[in-house]
Design a protein around this nucleic acid. Structure first.
Lengths: 243, 243
DNA sequence: TATAATACCATGTTTAAACATGTTATAACA
DNA sequence: TGTTATAACATGTTTAAACATGGTATTATA
């Protein structure tokens, strides 16, 4: 299958930016020239440029051009919890090395009926059935994060405790249940609670980071609510936006 | 000045989603019909739809349609530090009310020469001149956040301590120095340090949230580095993404 | 020489249309 | 009846072109 044109152009330009063909603070060739070079329309070039801009590599100014943004020279950074795999592919902080030894301990697994309290928390409907999962995330054997998850039952036909041990998303893919569409998240810092102290390696620390995810399916319904509570000094999240 | 067409369509559809003309989990009319209704091309409709999708209101599936995503019924949420104004427009947590009493105490103001250590921290170049600012953010009189900022001097001609009291961005706008293009951010939770305990109302808490921003100008250069360190249990950040 | 008018340059917006590809419902077939 | 073609449907990709608008440098003007 041939790649999409705008993806090819995006990747080509990205590589050239990273290899300093277009150094920071300089302008990319104008759209007209790029469209000649890649033998596509200006529209298609613009689409590739937009992707670069969304990723934070360049910034376009009307009437002036597309400038390459200076990279942030961060030696401590880190991870993005921004993938549907949850903690897979996560990096430690501040060592900035990939975590290989990621293990999951399923501390709790049960099917429940959504009551008012849980409905309020998860945005699920009262009387829906849902799986409740408590999973401890071990990094190099240390419990550094704990996930409290609710999955709507009707979306996870035949789901079992064994499946919970692995990746829930792998289960969804393997069984072709549906596609994950989008997620909202809320990130904050809160006081540690009883449970946190029990299961996480907090030491003296009396706070945890909290990342709450609301995950949507293909057809617009919420199917996962997960609050990840993590030990400070170990994780970070990256963001980017333009105006 | 007439509004952009795609913005009008975006706003119209957004309003209709919010007023339940198109309830969650249902589909929007197909692009063809929308283009007839608004009397624009399908392209223009698609642009509006893309904006709705980027904002997390809808999700498009090829071959099926554009579904409205269920909203998250969160009663505790909160703020986005995601604006160029820094703390302006921020909401408290968990009360979710607008903070009116936001005051700024300029604890430190000086012009410095960037040495290796600061260069490493800020991504500025060694020997650049920069303003260093330490600003305590008071919410209803309580010191809940502290900003440690470096601004490249050459970008802030004539900047003074008095200007620091107000919004730096207001200063930039008023003096038409440049436009803010983009920002990267790193969010984490870390142990509180000496200075945090001195100036923030931490009580027993021994951690703080840390939000580090790298802000870029129009022409692609980094001009601001700010680390905001904030008291737990007071703030939250919203995120959204789709796949 | 400073300022204003102007021309040019580069990105932004919109139209129009063709074709590609994934999804779903219908009809044909075994 | 269950499976398989097939058609209809809806979004995705790409081309082509015109015009709008902000930015910059040049030129004319006072």
């Amino acid at each position: 299958m041939p790649k999409k044109l705008y993806t090819e152009i995006y990747e080509a330009l990205k590589k050239e930016i990273e290899t300093n063909v277009y150094p920071p603070k300089t302008s990319l060739p104008r759209e007209e020239d790029l469209s000649k070079r890649f033998d596509v329309t200006r529209n298609t070039v613009r689409r590739a440029l937009k992707q670069l801009q969304e990723e934070g590599l360049v910034y376009a100014v009307k009437g002036r051009g597309v400038v390459v943004l200076e990279p942030v020279r961060s030696n401590q950074v880190v991870f993005s919890a921004n993938n549907s795999e949850g903690f897979q592919g996560l990096r430690s902080f501040p060592q900035n090395k990939f975590i290989q030894e990621l293990d999951t301990d399923v501390l709790n697994f049960k099917e429940i009926i959504v009551d008012e309290k849980i409905a309020n928390l998860t945005s699920f409907n009262i009387n829906d059935k849902a799986f409740y999962l408590e999973r401890l995330r071990l990094f190099d054997g240390k419990g550094l994060a704990i996930d409290h998850s609710y999955f709507r039952s009707d979306a996870l036909k035949g789901f079992s405790r064994e499946d919970a041990q692995g990746s829930v998303y792998k289960y969804i893919r393997d069984n072709e249940l549906f596609k994950v569409a989008a997620q909202r998240s809320i990130s904050s810092v809160v006081s540690a609670n009883q449970r946190d102290s029990e299961v996480l390696e907090l030491g003296d620390l009396n706070c945890v980071g909290s990342l709450t995810k609301f995950v949507y399916t293909d057809i617009g319904s919420l199917f996962e609510y997960t609050e990840t509570r993590y030990v400070p000094n170990n994780f970070a999240m990256l963001g980017f936006q333009y105006y």
